[in-house]
């Protein structure tokens, strides 16, 4: 008996110590209608749970107790309890929600409604849509500036970044960007806005104060045709030292010197790499690879892709909980 208890004790303590350093990944599986849960430190798939139809965009709540997940074919955003992994509510996102962003206080969500050319603003606490803002054709990328002043919506066919004043919830300016803008990301200091263009195959960096273009960053990978280089998801580290861009069917993640705005390396990851997320300490980068049905884990300190983890069909988005 004693031995048994010792084992139990070690197991409990061990897992406690372990979890203190670990992070948990939540990955939406577009074709499996499910959510995969992966331990970031060990790279083990721990659980898969069925959720709504065609889950795509995923955001962790400010208190980290809930996940918001766009169930595109259910025309809703699901609220999922991170402890029980049960659906505890729904947010009225309107038709076909795909991507959305949360404001810095965690009070509102801004949702791209691709088919209706709208951005829906949701009050999370009230579970209510408070406004719909008409934007360009096929809104896709959406981002809120760290100071909460701007909401940026990029529309794929109109080829614009719309500058929405967050206080007024009105478009106050529009910037033409390269064809099929996909993702928009602010640097953590809020000084720059980065927009990736799938068809142009580049990333445009804008100065937020002047709304002027700073630089267009192109990509060139030996033995990969230019058409395969389709920039989608992006992440920029807190110190704006390095930025990472998922390059879709080229199966690469580009590493960019975020000060010089120059590409310095490419990581080979799974097929059709779509979205990216850091571990909380920014020592690892996780990628969802839609076609190879796995995620890649990149060790950023040693600059190495260390693992790929099979998670299920069409991994789309991911959120990381410390």
């Amino acid at each position: 008996m004693k031995i048994k208890f010792l084992w139990l004790y070690l197991l409990l303590v061990g897992s406690f110590v372990h979890s203190a350093h670990a992070d948990t990944l939540y990955i939406t599986l577009e074709k499996d209608n499910a959510l995969a849960i992966v331990d970031g430190a060990t790279g083990k798939l721990t659980k898969t749970v069925k959720i709504g139809k065609r889950p795509r965009g995923i955001v962790l709540s400010k208190d980290q107790k809930q996940l918001y997940i766009a169930a595109s074919d259910d025309n809703t955003i699901l609220i999922i309890d991170t402890a029980t992994l049960k659906v505890v509510g729904r947010l009225p996102s309107d038709k076909d929600p795909e991507t959305f962003a949360m404001d810095p206080n965690g009070e509102f969500l801004y949702v791209s409604n691709e088919d209706d050319n709208l951005v829906t603003v949701i009050d999370i606490a009230k579970r209510k849509a408070v406004k719909q803002i008409p934007v360009g054709v096929e809104p896709e990328g959406i981002a809120v500036s760290p100071d909460g002043q701007w909401v940026i919506s990029t529309s794929e066919t109109t080829n614009m970044a719309h500058w929405i004043d967050r206080a007024k919830l009105e478009i106050v300016d529009n910037t033409l960007v390269d064809p099929r803008p996909r993702s928009a990301v602010f640097t953590s200091d809020g000084k720059q806005l980065w927009v990736s263009s799938e068809i142009a195959g580049n990333v445009s960096v804008f100065d937020v104060a002047t709304k002027q273009l700073v630089k267009k960053i192109g990509f060139k990978i030996p033995a990969v045709t230019q058409e395969k280089i389709q920039p989608v998801g992006m992440r920029i580290d807190k110190n704006r030292r390095y930025a990472y861009v998922a390059l879709g069917p080229s199966n690469r993640v580009a590493v960019i010197d975020a000060q010089k705005l120059e590409v310095i390396d490419y990581y080979l990851v799974g097929q059709r790499v779509w979205n990216l997320e850091f571990s909380p300490d920014e020592k690892r980068l996780y990628t969802t690879n839609g076609v190879s049905n796995d995620i890649s884990i990149i060790d950023l300190e040693n600059r190495k892709v260390i693992k790929s983890v099979a998670v299920g069909q069409y991994p789309w988005g991911l959120a990381v909980k410390p």
């Binding site: 659906v87 579970r127 849509a129 719909q132």
Partner: peptide, 27 residues
């Protein structure tokens, strides 16, 4: 009563959705 609550929330959300959204016409 969690499950009951959930169903209530869902159905209550579904019904007034249209009226809750003010402008759908392009400005």
């Amino acid at each position: 009563i969690g499950l009951l609550c959930l169903t209530l929330v869902v159905s209550a959300e579904a019904a007034p959705k249209k009226t809750a959204l003010p402008e759908k016409e392009p400005s």
